[in-house]
C-alpha cells in the first residue's frame, strides 16, 4: 500500500473542499489524489491490491449523515447509514426489494461497516482490473485493451459492455435503487444537486475509465427512495448460498390491477456494467396482461443484444430465467 495521509472531517462543506479533483469518479486513483473513505470496505481492498494509491484519505464516515427519515412517500437515507442499519429500519420492513438487496449482500460484518453511499459507488470485482500487474485493462490504462475478454470471465457483465470492457457493477442495493427510481443527493463545492441513481454510473461501453459522474469535491449525502404502491422483490442467484456477489439478480416492482400490469419496474444485477434498469423488458410488460408467456417475452427482449464472451455465454439465459422467476413470484401469476 502506498503511503497516504489520513484526515477526518466533521462537516459536509469541509469534505467537499478537501477533494479538488475528479478522482472519485475515475476508475483509478493515484498519489496526487485526495479521495473520501467511509466504511472502507471497497477502498481498502483496492488499496491493498495496489490498484488504488491515493495520497490522502478524507474520512467522511462520521459526517452527520446517519439518519433515515420517511418524508411523505419518500425514504431519505443519509449516505453514512450502514447497510445493516438500513436493512433493519422499520421503514424498509415492507419494501422487500430494498431490504433483500441489502440482506442478501456481503456478510453481517461487512453490512455493519459499509455505508449505503459507499455501496452505490462500489467498484467492479473484475480480477483483471484488480490486479495492477495485468497490463491490458481499459479501466486502469485506457487504450490498453481488456484481458477479461480473452480470459476468465464467468462473473462479468453482458449488458452495457463491449469488447473494450466487460466489468460488472456488483452492487445489489444499486439495482434495487434504480428499479425504485431512487435519486441521489450530491453536495459539491458549488452547492448541491439531485440526480437519479440511474444517471450516477457510467457504462463500460461509454467510458470504462470513468465509474460515475461525480464532479470534483462532490459527495453523496443522501439517497431519496420513493416507496412505491406496488409489490416488490429481489432475487439473487449465486453459486454459494450466502456471502457472494450475484451471478444474476432481478429486482421487480409491480402492481397488477385486474390482471394488468398497471405499474412495473425491473432491474437486473450481475449482468450490467452499471446497475441495470431493464427498460426494454418494461416496455413489453407495461399495461399488458400479466402471464408467464409475457414475462418470457419481456426477459428475452431485455437480453436480446447481450454481449457475451465464452465465460459469460450462460448469463443471458440465466438472467432471463431469473427475471421470469421474480416477475412470477412478485405478481403471483401462475400461468
Amino acid at each position: 500500500m502506498h503511503p497516504f495521509t489520513y484526515t477526518r472531517v466533521d462537516d459536509v462543506e469541509a469534505a467537499s473542499a478537501a477533494v479538488t479533483t475528479d478522482a472519485v469518479s475515475r476508475a483509478v486513483q493515484g498519489p496526487d489524489d485526495t479521495v473520501f473513505i467511509a466504511g472502507g470496505t471497497t477502498q481498502l481492498d483496492l488499496m491493498r491490491d495496489g490498484v488504488w494509491s491515493p495520497g490522502t484519505l478524507v474520512d467522511v464516515s462520521r459526517l452527520p449523515l446517519a439518519d433515515v427519515e420517511l418524508d411523505e412517500d419518500t425514504l431519505v437515507v443519509g449516505a453514512a447509514v450502514t447497510m445493516a442499519d438500513l436493512a433493519r429500519h422499520e421503514a424498509v420492513a415492507d419494501l422487500d426489494v430494498l431490504r433483500d438487496s441489502l440482506l442478501l449482500a456481503a456478510s453481517p460484518q461487512l453490512r455493519s461497516m459499509a455505508t449505503v453511499g459507499g455501496n452505490v459507488l462500489q467498484r467492479t470485482r473484475c480480477r483483471y482490473f484488480r490486479d495492477p500487474e495485468v497490463t491490458q485493462c481499459n479501466k486502469r490504462r485506457p487504450g490498453s485493451g481488456c484481458a477479461a475478454i480473452e480470459g476468465t470471465a464467468r462473473t462479468h457483465a453482458v449488458l452495457g459492455v463491449d469488447a473494450g470492457c466487460i466489468a460488472v457493477h456488483a452492487s445489489d442495493l444499486a439495482v434495487a435503487l434504480v428499479t425504485l427510481d431512487a435519486r441521489v443527493r450530491l453536495h459539491g463545492p458549488d452547492g448541491g444537486r439531485t440526480i437519479p441513481v440511474a444517471d450516477l454510473h457510467v457504462r463500460a461501453d461509454v467510458d470504462p475509465a470513468r465509474d460515475n459522474v461525480l464532479a470534483a469535491g462532490e459527495l453523496v449525502t443522501h439517497l431519496e427512495i420513493p416507496v412505491p404502491d406496488a409489490r416488490t422483490g429481489y432475487l439473487k442467484v449465486r453459486d454459494r448460498a450466502s456471502y457472494e456477489f450475484a451471478l444474476t439478480s432481478a429486482a421487480v416492482v409491480a402492481r397488477v390491477e385486474d390482471g394488468i400490469l398497471a405499474h412495473v419496474a425491473v432491474g437486473l444485477g450481475g449482468v450490467g456494467s452499471v446497475p441495470w434498469r431493464a427498460t426494454r423488458a418494461e416496455e413489453v410488460l407495461r399495461g399488458q396482461r400479466a402471464s408467464l408467456a409475457l414475462f418470457e417475452q419481456a426477459a428475452a427482449a431485455e437480453l436480446a443484444d447481450a454481449f457475451t464472451v465464452p465465460g459469460t455465454d450462460f448469463k443471458p439465459e440465466l438472467a432471463r430465467r431469473t427475471l421470469v422467476r421474480q416477475l412470477r413470484d412478485v405478481t403471483e401469476v401462475t400461468a
Partner: peptide, 10 residues
Amino acid sequence: DLHAGPQTGR
C-alpha cells in the same frame, strides 16, 4: 488464465 497475453498462467 490460459489466454490473456502476458498474464497467461496467472
